[in-house]
Write a protein that binds this DNA or RNA. Structure first.
Length: 734
DNA sequence: CAGTGAGCGAGCTTCCGCTTGACTT
C-alpha cells in the first residue's frame, strides 16, 4: 500500500474529484480547502525590525484538515502540490510543504490552469518546484495588508469606536461609494427641452428630434433650449413655417457587433443582477452549486460549470473546438464565427482559471432542467448562452439616419435594422436596437405635428452591489473570491447601507472615509493597489526582494501613522458632537457617541457614570379613538423593526402592544375581527384579520372603508385594476 | 403572506485572500 500511490494535494474538493477520475487508483488526491496557514488573528505577527519576518499559525478552522493532511501524507516520500497556478496558490503550496516537511520527503509542484485530463497529465509529466519568488510576492502582499489593516484599524478604533476597521481594499471601496455620493450631492440638474416633430411622406410617418438650429447643434443637454420660452419660440417657428420641408439626407451605416466575452466573476454577477435580479452573494452560492455539480441519471456526478471565482476570459482550445462543433450541429456551420474567437485576459488578471463556462456541451440546459432548481437552471442558462455565443458570427446592424430640413432647422431621426442577427439568435436580448425606419425617399415631406418636452439632467446613480463589483474589477481592487465579502464588511461596519437596492454611505461611513483619506492619503489612493501590484510583480520576477519592497511600501504608512497618532485627541474632540444637555444623574455634560447600533447620548463622566439615552426621543404620535385594553391608557404609534405598531403610553409600567388597525372589520361572516396592518418577512406590508390564527383572512392591498354593493365585501384599490371587489371580482367605477 | 418589537451602547478588535460547510448574527 505505502509508496505505491502518489499523493496530490489540491485546493478544492470538487477539483480533487475531477483529478481522481482522470488519474485513477494509483493516485490519492486530497483537498486543502484553500489556505491552511496564515498570520495570527490576535496580534500583528510581523516583526518589522527583523526584515518583516512573519509568524504563521494554522488557521483555526483548518486544524482538522491539516491533521488529516498529515495523516494521509505519512509514508509518502514524494508529494505533488497542485494548488492554483497563481500567487496565492504558490503560497498555499509552500505553506503545505512547510507543514508536511519531513526527512527525505520531496515536494513537486504541478501547474495547470484548466482541469482537463490532458492538461493534468501534461503537468504530471513535467513536475516543477515551488517558485519562492512568487511565494515572496504573496507574503509581501499578505504582510502589507496586515500592516495597513491592523494598524489603521486600531487607529480608527481610538477615534470612532469598537470594532471599526480599515483596509487597503475595503476603505478604497468605501471611498468609491462616497465619491459617487459626493457627485450626487453637488449635482445641479440642468433644464433642457426636447423638441420633436412628425413628418410624413406617402402615408409613412417618422418622428425626428431637433438637431440643428441656425447652424448650431442642439442635440445635447448643454446645447438644447434651456427654458420654456426658448422652446416655445422654436416650436412656434416650425409650426408657423409655411415653406417646404425636405428630407435632405439619408445616411446608412453598417456596424458589426462582436459577441461579448465569456463570463468572469464580476460580469456574471452583473448579468445575474440585471437579468435575474440576483444579488452577487446569491449568484455565487448558486454558481458554487453548479460547479460542485449534480448527480446525473446514470448516477455519475458531474460539475456543470468551470470554476466561478475567476478574472480570466480565457477558454481552453479543446473547449472552443467542442463549442464550435456543437454550434455547427445545432445551428448550422453558417452561424459560426469565421475563425475561433479567443479571448485574452485583461492586465492584472492572475489567469489561474479559465472563464466561467459550461463544462461540457453534452449537457445543455434543456437536458438537465429536471435535475436543477429553477435558480440553478436560470443561472446555468445564462452561462451556457453567453459561452455558446462567443463562437458565433458577429451581428450586423444597419443604422439609417434621415435628416429633415426647413425653417433653418434640422431634424434627425435614426433607426436600426438587422442585416444579420449573428450570435443574438441565442438570446435576442443581447442586442437592443432602435426601431426600423419606414422606407422614404429624398425630397419633400409634410410637417404633421411637433411636441416639446421639459427634461432635466440627472446625477449619476448610486451603485448596486453588482455595479460596485464591476467598478472594483475595473479599478483592480479586490479579487473574485472577495468581492462579496468586502461589501458585506462595509455593511457590517455600518459604513454603507442599502436604499432601494442601491448602496449609500451612512453618516458614520462618510465621517470614516473623510478621516481616513485625510490622514492616509497615499494608502487609500485608488491607484495604491495598482502600484503595489507592480512592486509585487518585481518580486515575482526577481528584480526586487521581499524586504526591499516592504520597506518601500511601509514608508508612507509609518510616516502618516506617526502624524495621525500625534493628533488622536485633537481629532477626537473635533469629531465629538456635543449637546446642550447635562446628565440627570450626575450633572456632567452629555455628548453624542457611536455605538453598535448608531448614535446615542452618553455622560462624559463615563465610566464613573453610566447614564445614556437615545439621540432621538420617542416622539410617538397618539393613536386617536382607541385606548390600551390592559390599563386604559392612550396608545402611541411606533415604528419598530417589523413595521408600525401601537404601544401603551405607560411603558415600561404597561408593556401592552398591538398592531395598527385599518378601521375596517373582517369581511368573513360572523368573524367579529377587524383588519390590521402586518408586515411579511420580505418587508412587504399586508393586511390581515386581528383574530389570526383563528381567522386566516389576509390580503396584500389596503382595504377601503367601503363595501361592495353586490356582496358586502370590503373593496380594494389596486394600482392596475382600479377599485374592485376581491370576493365577486366586480369592478367598481369611482 | 404572520405573532415580534423601546431594553443595549463606549477602552483589544482589526486586515486580504484561498476554500467549504456549520450555523443559529
Amino acid at each position: 500500500m505505502k509508496n505505491k500511490k502518489n499523493l496530490v494535494i489540491i485546493e478544492s474538493p470538487a477539483k480533487a474529484r475531477s483529478l481522481q477520475s482522470y488519474l485513477g487508483d494509483r493516485y490519492e488526491i486530497i483537498a486543502s480547502y484553500g489556505h491552511v496557514r496564515d498570520l495570527p488573528r490576535h496580534y500583528i505577527g510581523v516583526d518589522e525590525k527583523n526584515n518583516f519576518k512573519p509568524t504563521y499559525t494554522i488557521l483555526p478552522d483548518k486544524r482538522k484538515v491539516v491533521a488529516q493532511l498529515k495523516k494521509k501524507a505519512s509514508g509518502f516520500s514524494r508529494i505533488y502540490l497542485a494548488a492554483d497556478p497563481d500567487r496565492e496558490g504558490e503560497a498555499i503550496c509552500w505553506h503545505l510543504s512547510q507543514i508536511l516537511e519531513e526527512d527525505g520527503r520531496v515536494f513537486k509542484r504541478l501547474r495547470f490552469n484548466a482541469v482537463t485530463k490532458e492538461t493534468v497529465l501534461k503537468a504530471l509529466k513535467n513536475p516543477s518546484v515551488i517558485d519562492m519568488q512568487l511565494v515572496d510576492a504573496q507574503q509581501a502582499r499578505r504582510v502589507m495588508d496586515r500592516l495597513v489593516g491592523y494598524k489603521i484599524s486600531s487607529y480608527l478604533q481610538k477615534i470612532i469606536g469598537r470594532g471599526k476597521s480599515a483596509g487597503r481594499v475595503q476603505t478604497v471601496v468605501l471611498r468609491i461609494i462616497q465619491q459617487r455620493e459626493d457627485e450626487i450631492n453637488i449635482f445641479i440638474p440642468v433644464e433642457h427641452w426636447l423638441i420633436e416633430a412628425e413628418f410624413h411622406q406617402n402615408n409613412k410617418i417618422i418622428k425626428a428630434s431637433l438637431f440643428i438650429v441656425d447652424g448650431k447643434r442642439v442635440d445635447k443637454p448643454g446645447l438644447a433650449p434651456r427654458s420654456s420660452e426658448e422652446a416655445l419660440t422654436i416650436h412656434g417657428r416650425l409650426t408657423d413655417y409655411e415653406g417646404e420641408w425636405t428630407l435632405s439626407g439619408i445616411k446608412r451605416k453598417i456596424r458589426s457587433v462582436k459577441p461579448p466575452p465569456p463570463f468572469i466573476t464580476s460580469t456574471l454577477q452583473q448579468a445575474a443582477s440585471t437579468r435575474l435580479s440576483y444579488s452577487p452573494s446569491r449568484t455565487m452560492t448558486i454558481a458554487q452549486q453548479l460547479y460542485e455539480g449534480i448527480s446525473l441519471e446514470n448516477k455519475e456526478r458531474s460539475g456543470l460549470i468551470t470554476y466561478m471565482r475567476t478574472d480570466s476570459v480565457r477558454i481552453s482550445p479543446e473547449s472552443i473546438k467542442e463549442c464550435r462543433e456543437y454550434i455547427s450541429r445545432k445551428y448550422g456551420s453558417n452561424t459560426l464565427s469565421e475563425s475561433p474567437n479567443r479571448y485574452r485576459s485583461s492586465k492584472g488578471s492572475q489567469d489561474a482559471h479559465e472563464a466561467i463556462r459550461p463544462v461540457s456541451t453534452e449537457l445543455p440546459p434543456s437536458s438537465v432542467s429536471t435535475l436543477l432548481t429553477s435558480p440553478q437552471l436560470a443561472l446555468y442558462s445564462l452561462i451556457w448562452n453567453r459561452f455558446i455565443a462567443t463562437q458565433m458570427k458577429d451581428a450586423e446592424i444597419e443604422k439609417t439616419t434621415y435628416t429633415v430640413t426647413g425653417a433653418d432647422l434640422e431634424f434627425k431621426c435614426t433607426g436600426d435594422r438587422f442585416l444579420s442577427r449573428g450570435y443574438s439568435i441565442i438570446d435576442p436580448s443581447y442586442i437592443r436596437i432602435e426601431k426600423e425606419l419606414p422606407l422614404m425617399k429624398k425630397g419633400s415631406v409634410i410637417f404633421e405635428s411637433a411636441t416639446r418636452e421639459q427634461k432635466f439632467t440627472s446625477p449619476p446613480p448610486r451603485f448596486s452591489e453588482a455595479r460596485l463589483v464591476a467598478e472594483m474589477k475595473k479599478q483592480g481592487i479586490g479579487r473574485p473570491s472577495t468581492y462579496v465579502s468586502t461589501i458585506k464588511t462595509l455593511k457590517n461596519r455600518k459604513y454603507v447601507e442599502k436604499e432601494g437596492g442601491l448602496l449609500k454611505p451612512t453618516e458614520l461611513g462618510t465621517t470614516t472615509e473623510r478621516l481616513l483619506v485625510r490622514m492616509f492619503p497615499h494608502i487609500f489612493e485608488i491607484g495604491f493597489t495598482a502600484s503595489m501590484e507592480d512592486l509585487l510583480d518585481s518580486i515575482a520576477n526577481g528584480d526586487e526582494s521581499y524586504v526591499d519592497v516592504l520597506k518601500i511600501m511601509n514608508l508612507p504608512l509609518v510616516s502618516s501613522l506617526e502624524k495621525a497618532m500625534a493628533t488622536v485627541s485633537d481629532v477626537r474632540s473635533d469629531l465629538q458632537e456635543t449637546t446642550e444637555e447635562t446628565c440627570p444623574e450626575c450633572g456632567s455634560p452629555l455628548v453624542v457617541r457611536w455605538g453598535r447600533y448608531g448614535k446615542f447620548k452618553a455622560c462624559t463622566a463615563f465610566p464613573k457614570c453610566k447614564f445614556s439615552k437615545p439621540v432621538k426621543e420617542h416622539a410617538a404620535a397618539i393613536f386617536e379613538g382607541r385606548s390600551c385594553s390592559v390599563c386604559g391608557g392612550k396608545l402611541l404609534l411606533n415604528a419598530g423593526r417589523y413595521g408600525r405598531y401601537l404601544r401603551c403610553e405607560k411603558y415600561p409600567d404597561c408593556d401592552h402592544t398591538e398592531p395598527v388597525p385599518v378601521g375596517v372589520s373582517c369581511p368573513i361572516p360572523d368573524c367579529g375581527g377587524e383588519l390590521v396592518e402586518k408586515r411579511s418577512r420580505t418587508g412587504r406590508i399586508f393586511f390581515s384579520c386581528s383574530r389570526y390564527p383563528e381567522c386566516k383572512y389576509a390580503i396584500w392591498n389596503k382595504p377601503l372603508d367601503r363595501i361592495c354593493p353586490r356582496c358586502g365585501f370590503p373593496i380594494l384599490e389596486e394600482r392596475k385594476k382600479g377599485i374592485f371587489c376581491p370576493s365577486c371580482k366586480k369592478r367598481i367605477s369611482n
